[in-house]
Design a binder for these strands. Structure first.
Lengths: 275, 275
DNA sequence: CGCTTATTTGAGAGAAGTCAAGTACGGTGG
DNA sequence: CCACCGTACTTGACTTCTCTCAAATAAGCG
């Protein structure tokens, strides 16, 4: 299968990495600007970058933004595209990924309601963003938003804070990718997903839904789908999780999962060779 | 060997990870604030966050900052410490790392003249920073710097830009850690170091010095020292680099190194199984 | 010069990858 | 409602890349 993505990149992909060829943006709808009521009633208002704006100022934002819908598997922006927009997720889930020329893929993050992307790059996007569920997105012109920073220092601060938080979590993910075993990676992933789910639900939930498939999880953790699957099976057999289908997991022992996410018993490795 | 780092963490480490027990900060000197002339004549002025300040405003910065010296292997701040300061490197090289409870370490970045750190975390530092060469550092109270953002939007913008650039490069590093082979990792690393060296020297240099040792490189690339060493030997035998001692490398074929850093010939992997 | 520490090299082991086959699941249409 | 199909997931057998352990060599320093 040969895909032409955007106008710049032509890649050969395995069926695993992009199973569905209908990834053009043809069917996405965009309105010139959001109905003001859409902002007022926005479910993501309190977790997104908008949460520092009062209802009046929200109207200024809404006039700048377009409301975009994407189906699952549709591309929102592509590595190499001109980066004109900032995207804010109102609902749904998005994956952010980078690729090597031969098709190997690294997912650098999963984004959910309230998350934004499109600001960290320079003139061109340095990653691809794709919907993994149907998504609603607010799209802002980058330039305009950056201009607004002058007028609304709160907004600037909020976006900066969120960027710093993201930088922080990428550091944790680098530790995972560089130094954790497959089992530790999966435990960490499940706990991260739990935290995100709880944050959005505003309560702690040990039953989590996984909108992404095994291939996405593998590419997020630097593993293969087979290894991910085997580790799910292991944790299931150990009774640490209970699988209900492939995309619903309940975490049965948070404490043990947390310990395993950091290397099991602390006294386990070469660190124990005290001279 | 048992080390007590800072006041909060007690870790067991192999000799590889922290060979020198004399890592307390006792010998570091700090002046209450910088002599204004120090800022004016600062070698890092044009590449650091200060480069948006004119000479008068620089004095405001200099009154806030302390000038700190550290010897190689001394710790600047430790994961878990209260994050009171922002650090700006005037000269020398610093490694930023995170650790698992059993001592496995991931170096998330090497920082050089003009780079800053200490802002991306919340109340506590989420990583450890150590000098790998003797370093001179400007230390600013975080609070004060953030207050200055109001008065100097340029400074805010500059710091934000640098943070975004860093976020961008962590994404590239995640692709490296999750999806590249040992050979590709080392090629990528050498090219990154070349870019940084060239940036500071303001000209392209194919001879690069490596201030970090093999253990640092290994922990940066998610490998072991043995694998790093073997890959150096390989590239040397292939004539792509020339080793002059362990810490001086000249890159003999940038183009081939660049290709190898991304997976060799593009037509190499499973991506070629066109259905 | 002799000691310590860092790096390189070699041989063998193991965790995760690859390839291949089987199973479960969800949607569609008779 | 059930049979069929395609996709996603799981499981098994085998391979391989990197790690581990061990020893040799090189480099740095008092």
């Amino acid at each position: 299968m040969v895909l032409t993505i955007g106008k710049t990149l032509s890649l050969r992909l395995t069926s695993i990495h992009s199973p569905d060829p209908q990834i053009e943006n043809a069917h996405s709808k965009a309105y010139n600007h959001l109905d003001q009521k859409i902002c007022q009633g926005c479910a993501s208002k309190h977790v997104s970058l908008c949460n520092v704006m009062d209802n009046d100022d929200l109207n200024i934002l809404s006039r700048l933004s377009s409301n975009i819908h994407k189906k699952a598997k549709q591309i929102i922006c592509t590595e190499g595209d001109n980066a004109k927009y900032l995207y804010n997720i109102r609902s749904g889930a998005v994956r952010i990924s980078k690729m090597l020329p031969d098709g190997r893929r690294q997912i650098t993050g999963f984004l959910f309601t309230g998350d934004f992307f499109g600001l960290s790059c320079g003139a061109q996007h340095s990653y691809t963003a794709e919907a993994i569920t149907p998504v609603e997105i607010c799209r802002f012109p980058r330039k305009k938003i950056i201009e607004l920073f002058q007028e609304f220092p709160n907004l600037n601060e909020r976006v900066f804070d969120m960027t710093r938080t993201e930088l922080n979590s990428t550091h944790a993910q680098m530790l995972l990718l560089g130094r954790k075993t497959a089992k530790e990676k999966l435990c960490s992933f499940l706990l991260t997903m739990r935290k995100k789910t709880s944050l959005l639900a505003k309560k702690s939930k040990d039953e989590i839904g996984l909108p992404m498939n095994r291939s996405d999880i593998a590419d997020y953790l630097g593993l293969t789908i087979e290894t991910v699957s085997r580790q799910f099976t292991n944790l299931n057999k150990l009774g640490l999780i209970k699988l209900d289908g492939a995309d619903k997991v309940s975490l049965k022992n948070i404490e043990r999962l947390s310990i395993m996410a950091e290397g099991g018993r602390i006294l386990s490795r070469k660190a124990y060779k005290t001279p």
